[in-house]
Design a protein around this nucleic acid. Structure first.
Length: 493
RNA sequence: CGGGGUUUAGCGCAGUUGGUAGCGCGCUACGUUCGGGACGUAGAGGUCGGGCGUUCGAGUCGCCUAACCCCGACCA
């Protein structure tokens, strides 16, 4: 008996426990022995890989080039940009020694006190500093610009509290760092990248996102402007899913990166940086999953179709395998990833449950009865609906269905977000509504003080100032001062 | 960094007033099964997080320590 497999905690009871169980049971990741870190398992990593490949292709279409910079950053590099350092200093892992030796008392190994580094090295929490230290050598003339580099890497932030995928001490991400001759060009790149993220979230993750600008309080340390995509999870909390920063000349000045312009005048370069991380995996899980497990969007599912044969003996299995073989070939030819699970150590019922937990979008079950009738049982993961269909032409049906599922789960998530989005005109109304979670559109006077007050009193922060939507002015719900437009408040991860 | 909790087989747990370690799942072998999480039989698997102490005797009591989890504060 394998009762362990499903039996997830109900979402409504304890969302965070539900999420954790889901990640583990769907075989995506597990807690590692290292504090705050996780092990991403092959199935989970396959999803990440698909995200990576898709994003990478989108980047390259806009001229992005990949590069790689060191993991360890000399401490002195972090002294340069004051605001930036203040943002990250509290959560840095520091390398102080370069050698171990046998413990003289015979208890394993100890850090060799003789091997202390003259200058400590910081495990990168983000790479702005090392990259700008490097760019200084690459940039001399306006002809060297723009530089549009991206790196796929791991970073480490010694977080107080961690949660799988959403906030782990070590995480995987991509960070793009660009250098431009003009502010306009840098800002244009900043916006271009946030739009790529939004596109990716919507089309591939089937996750509706709101594109907007961060308030000063929520802005990236050292940036002049931060663009964000904000998503809503199924418990009504917001999740910042990707950011793109206009850095102005801050880093260029801190690292003294200048170029000679067409008029032979030295100028500081303009910069942007942008990134998304394995946090997107968390977003994916929390956006679509139900109490039966994961629901993966077909565009990112490592296995799009699973075929489970139902058989009593070897003859039946081989008959089914023969019948299914051309279907698999056809599907693969169409670019659909198929798994034919004929493992004989699991019974069909177990496999059904297992692939449901793993979120495989389409399942086919085929047995002797179907073989006789020329049919197959098809189940779609998003609605859990089953139907029996003719085997003939099933490939085209599946191709169409995968698109339908992709669309359906997007619409479902969008409908949920809309249902959970409210407006509030008074602070009282706001306080009352924020208790139910969700996004609240409200007027704000634009000051950090007011935002801080709201945060302290309600735990809600400004997720973003949306770029689209209702932009009629009004008055701040707290101070009554003029407000340019409604902004989005929410409690966030 | 505050407040709580946990640590015993691969996983989830039980273990009484101290008496020398157990259950379920999983795993291995064989057989019967196979259309929504199969069952039988026989096995393998543990210096009870670590250290010190009390005791004839410690999973159990005391002190110290570590790791992890949850709730806050901080943050992507």
């Amino acid at each position: 008996m394998a009762k362990e497999l499903k039996n997830l905690t109900k979402r409504s009871e304890n969302y965070s426990q539900w999420y954790n169980e889901l990640v583990t049971k769907a075989d995506l990741a597990e807690q590692s022995a290292v504090r705050g870190c996780m092990v991403i398992k092959p199935y989970g990593y396959a999803i990440w890989e698909k995200m990576q490949q898709t994003l990478d292709a989108m980047f390259k279409k806009t001229g992005v080039k990949n590069a790689y910079f060191p993991l360890l950053i000399p401490k002195s590099f972090l002294c340069r940009e004051a605001e930036h350092v203040e943002g990250f200093a509290k959560e840095c892992a520091v390398v102080t020694h370069y050698r171990l030796k046998n413990d003289p008392d015979g208890n394993g190994v100890i850090v060799d006190p003789e091997a202390r580094l003259e200058e400590e090295l910081i495990v990168r929490p983000t790479s702005e500093t090392i990259i700008w230290g490097t760019y200084k050598n690459w940039i001399h003339s306006y002809r060297d610009l723009p530089i549009v580099c991206n790196q796929w890497a791991n970073v480490m932030r010694w977080e107080m509290r961690t949660r799988m995928f959403l906030r782990t001490a070590e995480f995987l991400w991509q960070e793009g760092h660009t250098a431009h001759a003009t502010a306009e060009e840098a800002e244009e790149r900043t916006v271009q990248m946030i739009n790529i993220y939004a596109d990716f979230a919507r089309k591939y993750m089937a996750m509706p996102v709101i594109v907007g600008v961060k308030s000063a309080n929520e802005r990236f340390a050292g940036a002049l402007n931060t663009y964000t995509i904000e998503a809503m999870m199924q418990d009504g909390k917001a999740l910042q899913s990707g950011t793109s920063h206009f850095l102005g000349q801050n880093f260029a000045k801190a690292f003294d990166v200048t170029f000679v312009n067409k008029d032979n005048q030295p100028e500081y370069v303009w910069a942007s940086s942008w990134g998304v991380s394995t946090r997107l995996m968390g977003a994916l899980i929390m956006t679509h999953s139900d109490d039966n497990g994961l629901v993966l969007p077909p565009h990112l599912a490592p296995i799009q179709v699973v075929i489970v044969p139902i058989y009593k003996n070897d003859e039946q299995l081989s008959a089914i395998s023969e019948r299914v073989k051309p279907i698999i070939a056809k599907l693969e030819e169409m670019g659909i990833s198929v798994k034919y699970d004929d493992a004989d150590n699991r019974r069909p019922g177990f496999k059904f449950a297992d692939y449901e937990v793993k979120g495989v979008p389409v399942r086919l079950a085929i047995g002797a009865r179907d073989l006789e009738n020329g049919t197959v049982e098809l189940m779609r993961r998003d609605t859990l609906e089953k139907e029996t269909l003719p085997l003939e032409g099933i490939e085209a049906h599946i191709a169409g269905l995968l698109e339908k599922i992709q669309e359906n789960i997007y619409n479902k998530a969008l409908a949920y977000r809309e249902k959970m989005t409210y407006t509030a005109d008074t602070y009282e109304e706001f306080k009352e509504k924020i208790e139910n979670g969700g996004f609240i559109l409200a007027h704000w006077d634009g000051t950090p003080e007011t935002e801080e007050k709201i945060k302290n009193e309600t735990k809600a922060t400004i997720r973003c100032i949306p770029l689209d939507g209702d932009d009629t002015p009004g008055v701040c719900m707290v101070t009554g001062k003029p407000s340019a437009r409604r902004v989005i408040f929410a409690r966030a991860y």
